[in-house]
Amino acid sequence: MHILKELLESRFLIWTLSVYDFRSQYLGSMLGFLWAMIKPLVMAGIYVLIFSSVIPPENGSAGSTSQFGLYVFAGMLPWFVIQESVQRGSTVLLDQAHLVRHHNIPLHILPLHIVISATVSGLYAIIVFMAVKLFFVHEINPFFLLIVFALPAQILFCWGLAMLISTANVFIRDISHLTMAMLTIWFFASPIVFAVDNLPWYLTLPWLNPLVSLTAIYRDLLLFQRIPHLVDIIFFSLHTLVVLAAGTVFYQRTYKEVVDWV
C-alpha cells in the first residue's frame, strides 16, 4: 500500500524518466523513432528467415511461410518488452547510482521507468506488426485494439521481475550476468519461434511458463483476431500476481540497504 502511495505521488517523475529514457535512445539519429520500428522488424525477420527456410517448420498450427512469419512476429512482441525490461532493468539501480545516492525518491520507480520505456517501444513494434499483417492479409479489424487491456498486466509482470532482479543485483552483482543467460534459455524454451505444437509438452504448461499464456493472448488478439482463452488470461494474471508479490516483498525487505551498496 505504501508503494501505491509512492507511485501516485511520483507519477510525474515516473513519466518524465520514462519518456526521457525512450526519447534519448533515438535522440540525434536521423531516422529517430523509426528505429523503434526497424529494430523489431529486423529481429523478427531474422528468426522467420532461419526457422522457415533453414529449418522448415513441420505442419502444424503455423501453416504457410507468411503465416508462420506473422506467427513468430506476434510471439516476439511481448518478448521484446520482457527482454528489454529485464535486461536493462537488472542493472538500473547501479546505472542510475547517482539518483539513488543523491535523491530521496522511491527506488522501485527506477525499474518501473525502464519497463514503461520498453512498453512504449513495444507499442511501436505492435504498429509495425499490424502494418506487416495488413500487407500480407489485406484485412484488418479493430479487434487488435483490445491489446491495451493486456498491457497493464504485462507492465506489472515486467515491473515485478525487474524490481526483484535489480534489487538482488545490487547485493550480488553476478545476478545480472546470470539473468542474461537465463533470458536466452527462456526465449528458446518458449513458444515464440516454435509453434506450440512443435514444443515438447512440458514446455507448453501455462502454469510453468508465463510466456505460454502471454504469447497466446498476443496471437489471439493481433493475429487471429479473436477473444483470448480464459485459461490464458487467468494464468497470466496469476503469474503477474506471483511475480509482483515476490518483487515487492523482496524490495521492501531490502530497499533501505540498497543505497549503502550502490
Binding site: 526521457y20 534519448s24 535522440l27 540525434g28 547517482h98 539518483l99 545516492r101 543523491h102 535523491h103 530521496n104
Partner: peptide
C-alpha cells in the same frame, strides 16, 4: 529540499 549534488540526475542529451 536536499541539494546534495546539483549535477546528478541531469540528462546530458536533453
Amino acid at each position: 529540499s536536499a541539494v546534495l549534488d546539483i549535477q546528478s540526475g541531469l540528462h546530458p542529451r536533453m
